[in-house]
């Protein structure tokens, strides 16, 4: 099940329905810049994943009509950081981001999905993919993030150790 929200509505009516972990993730998915580019986030209740949607708008384009690569970098940074924040209940600081671009031609809607690859202590690595509305891959990234998980919170390390 997915619960959809726009960053602009955080803190209003919908927020009471979110549990604490989701609230942490929602809050730390990059609110200001997140809002400014018009992202719509979705929580995936099935695990440590986060789904992000971006409807195409004119200000996301370059002078040649293609999408600015920074839009996809932002989208991948947000989606990976949000999934890691959700898993560790901690703000995820980006250390490294490596993006491969496959198609910068403008599409109607973009959807980003992520999965966490590895967590070791404070450092967590995730990958992210951006699809267009036809599920064609347009960009892919790997990112390494630094977290500061509290001892009382669920961390990826503990889950991995337990597993």
């Amino acid at each position: 099940m997915h619960s959809k929200r726009n960053g602009k509505n955080n803190g209003e009516n919908g927020e009471d329905a979110l549990d604490r972990r989701v609230r942490v993730e929602a809050n730390e998915s990059g609110a200001s810049f997140y809002d400014y580019l018009g992202f719509i986030g979705e929580d995936d209740d099935s695990g440590h994943s986060f789904r992000l949607e971006l409807p195409l708008q004119h200000f996301l384009l370059q002078e040649d009509g293609t999408v600015h690569p920074g839009v996809f970098a932002t989208m991948l940074d947000i989606v990976m950081g949000a999934a890691i924040s959700k898993a560790t209940s901690s703000f995820a600081v980006t250390i490294n981001l490596n993006i491969s671009y496959f198609d910068l031609d403008p599409k109607q809607t973009y959807i980003a999905e992520t999965s966490i690859l590895f967590g070791d202590g404070k450092y967590v690595t995730a990958d992210g993919v951006i699809y267009d509305q036809n599920r064609k891959t347009v960009a892919k990234a790997t990112g390494t993030f630094k977290t500061n998980p509290k001892s009382s919170s669920i961390s990826i390390d503990k889950e991995m150790e337990a597993g």
């Binding site: 990059g30 200001s32 810049f33 920074g70 970098a73 932002t74 940074d77």
Partner: peptide, 22 residues
């Protein structure tokens, strides 16, 4: 500006990436 920040009140990683690519 405030619009460039994340909720940790630091420059959003997407801004760095956009600037470097540009």
């Amino acid at each position: 500006d405030l619009k460039h920040l994340n909720t940790n009140k630091t420059l959003h990683g997407g801004v760095h990436a956009s600037m470097l690519d540009t």
